[in-house]
Amino acid sequence: MANLILASSSPRRRELLQQLGLDFQINSPNIDESIYLNESVEHYVERLACSKADAIFEEFPNAIIIAADTSVAVDHHILGKPESKQHAFEMWHLISGRRHDVLSGVCVRTKHKKLSIVVRTEVEFQELTPQEMDDYWNTGEPLGKAGGYAIQGIAARFIPNIMGSYTNVVGLPLHETVQLLQTVKVLN
C-alpha cells in the first residue's frame, strides 16, 4: 500500500481512522482557517479540508493524503472552538433546546486525483441550564472542540437524537471516507 498520511493532529480523527485498520502517518498542516466573507459552511469545511491536503501533498507528493475539517453550524453561522468560558456559553445558548448541523469536509489527494465531499449530520441538543453549562465547562472537555462539545464524551448526555453519521460529529465520517479511499484504490 502507498504511504498514507492523515493531515490532522486531532486524536479523534486518528482513532476513527485506526478503526479502518489502516497503517498511516500523521502530519498536521499549518493553514489559515479564517472564514471568508459570506462563505457558506459547506464551502468552508470543504475548502479547509482541501487546503490541508494540498499543504501536506506539497511535502509528500507520492503519498495519499486524507484531510478533514469539521464545523458546527446553527442558522448558517459557523460556531468555532470556544475561546473562553463566555464564548462557550454563547455557543451553548445558540444550540440549547434545538437542532444544529455538524458538517465535515473530507479530501483525499493523490498524485492523480483530488476528491472531496461534505457530510452533514443534524444534532438535537437538550435545553441546558446555566448550572449544566458551568459544570460542563469545568470538565475541560469543551476546549478545542467545534461548537464547544464532544459527542463522544460527557456531552453525549445532552444529545437525545442525531440524524446522520455519528462519526461525522466526532470528526471524520468513516463511511464517506472509505468511499473516497475506494475510488483512489486504497481500499477494496
Rank of each mutant, 00 (worst) to 15 (best):
T183W: 00
T70V: 12
E15P: 00
V106S: 02
R98E: 09
L17T: 04
E83G: 11
V108G: 01
Q18E: 13
N30T: 12
A156C: 14
E58T: 10
S116R: 08
A88D: 05
G97S: 05
D75W: 02
Y149Q: 06
G171Q: 02
S116L: 10
I154C: 05
S8H: 06
M163K: 15
D75M: 07
Q152F: 10
G105H: 04
K113Q: 15
D54C: 11
R157P: 01
F24W: 02
S34K: 02
Y44I: 13
L79A: 06
P173G: 07
D23P: 12
Q131L: 15
L103M: 12
T110H: 08
E33S: 06
M163H: 15
E42H: 12
V74M: 06
H112Y: 11
H100Q: 08
H76Y: 11
S8R: 07
V186I: 13
L115T: 09
E132H: 04
I154V: 13
K85Y: 05
A2E: 15
H93M: 10
P29M: 01
H76K: 14
N138T: 07
N30C: 07
I159W: 07
N62C: 11
E83Y: 02
D23I: 14
C107T: 05
V41P: 10
I5Y: 02
I151T: 03
V106R: 00
I56A: 02
R120S: 13
V45I: 12
I159F: 09
N161S: 14
E42L: 11
V186A: 06
A156S: 15
E39W: 05
I162M: 09
H175N: 03
I5K: 04
F57T: 06
L181R: 00
N3I: 15
E122N: 13
T183M: 05
T121I: 11
H100W: 03
F60N: 13
G153P: 03
I66C: 10
L187N: 07
P29V: 05
D134I: 10
W92G: 12
H77N: 14
D32T: 03
I26R: 01
K114F: 04
M1E: 15
E39F: 10
A68Y: 09
E122A: 14
V170E: 00
V45K: 05
L79K: 04
K114Y: 01
L94Q: 12
F24N: 05
I162F: 12
F89M: 14
D54P: 01
D23A: 14
L180G: 04
N38C: 07
Y36S: 10
E176N: 04
I78Q: 01
C50L: 14
W137C: 12
H100E: 03
E124K: 12
T121G: 11
N3M: 15
L181H: 01
N168V: 08
L187V: 10
K111S: 14
T110C: 10
I154G: 00
V184K: 02
F24R: 04
Q19N: 09
A150F: 03
K145T: 11
L22Y: 06
Q182C: 08
Q152Y: 10
K85D: 01
C50R: 13
L17M: 09
L174S: 04
G144I: 10
G21S: 09
P142F: 03
F60C: 08
V108P: 01
L22S: 07
I162T: 11
N38R: 08
I56F: 03
Q25C: 06
Y36M: 11
L17N: 02
Q179S: 13
L174E: 01
A49G: 08
